[in-house]
């Protein structure tokens, strides 16, 4: 807890988060002002949430990870578990990004669209932030080189935001003679961005409890799965143990 708080203070000092909050707030506020139809504003906001939230989460978390490398090393010299330190880093980054998102988008939504769709949008934004922060941490632990780490993070973002849907579309057209509905559902559930989009679309169209359930479930699985992946990855790394740390650096 203590470490998380230090990480949070550190992040809040850097003002990047503040800028991000302000950006989100201005964009969502002006969207609601420009469109007289609330539903349309929500749709435009959906695009922002689907593209910008993952991107910022990824880039910010990766950079933050590399910047706090030394802090982590210092912490590792203390009697603290490796998992705890990394989890605090994750919690710090995720919490600050989450706070920025909830303030920046949440306040305009509370004012202009405080209905189930608005809250669904907040929910998906929250989930996306958490998911992409954890993926960013995975990208960061994959590589020691900062530039390469950020590159990997950007590539992953690009993959989920654009390439995945392109591949899906290609697949749908090459197998258009076959019944692809269920398979498509499965495939879109493997991409958190698609999942978030479909969740909101279902909210907008009809209130469908089944759809809601099926969308939430893979979302949580995603979150869980990435935690597992990166903590395992992390356990395999050689540099962070207090004993071997100094030699390998």
């Amino acid at each position: 807890m203590q470490v998380t708080r230090y990480v949070l203070y550190d992040i809040l000092k850097s003002k990047v988060i503040l800028a991000y909050t302000l950006f989100l707030f201005l964009v969502s506020f002006s969207l609601f002002q420009l469109e007289e139809d609330g539903g349309k504003a929500i749709l435009s906001l959906l695009t922002i949430v689907l593209l910008v939230t993952p991107l910022i989460s990824m880039v910010f978390s990766t950079i933050h990870y590399y910047n706090s490398y030394e802090f982590m090393e210092l912490m590792l010299s203390q009697p603290l578990g490796r998992t705890r330190i990394l989890l605090s880093e994750y919690a710090g980054a995720a919490l600050s990004l989450l706070a920025a998102f909830l303030l920046g988008v949440g306040i305009p939504i509370l004012f202009f669209a405080a209905d189930s769709t608005g809250f669904a949008l907040l929910f998906t934004g929250t989930a996306l932030t958490l998911i992409f922060t954890s993926i960013a941490f995975l990208a960061a632990v994959c590589s020691r080189d900062k530039a390469r780490g950020i590159g990997i993070a950007l590539l992953i973002w690009f993959y989920f935001a654009l390439i995945y849907d392109g591949l899906l579309m290609m697949l749908l057209f090459s197998f258009s003679d076959y019944p692809m509905e269920k398979f498509t559902l499965l495939l879109s559930a493997l991409n958190p961005v698609d999942l978030a989009r479909i969740f909101i679309m279902l909210q907008l169209d009809v209130k469908c409890p089944h759809g809601l359930y099926w969308c939430c479930l893979p979302g949580f699985l995603w979150q869980h799965c990435w935690h597992r992946v990166y903590s395992r990855h992390y356990a395999n790394l050689d540099i962070h143990s207090p004993i071997s740390g100094s030699t390998s650096l």
């Binding site: 695009t47 849907d165 579309m169 749908l172 258009s176 498509t184 961005v193």
Partner: peptide, 17 residues
């Protein structure tokens, strides 16, 4: 119209591109 299953990509980034 050609392939109704692609409706799942509604409002995705690639579609607007």
């Amino acid at each position: 119209e050609q392939n109704p299953t692609t409706l799942i990509l509604m409002r995705s980034f690639i579609v607007s591109l």
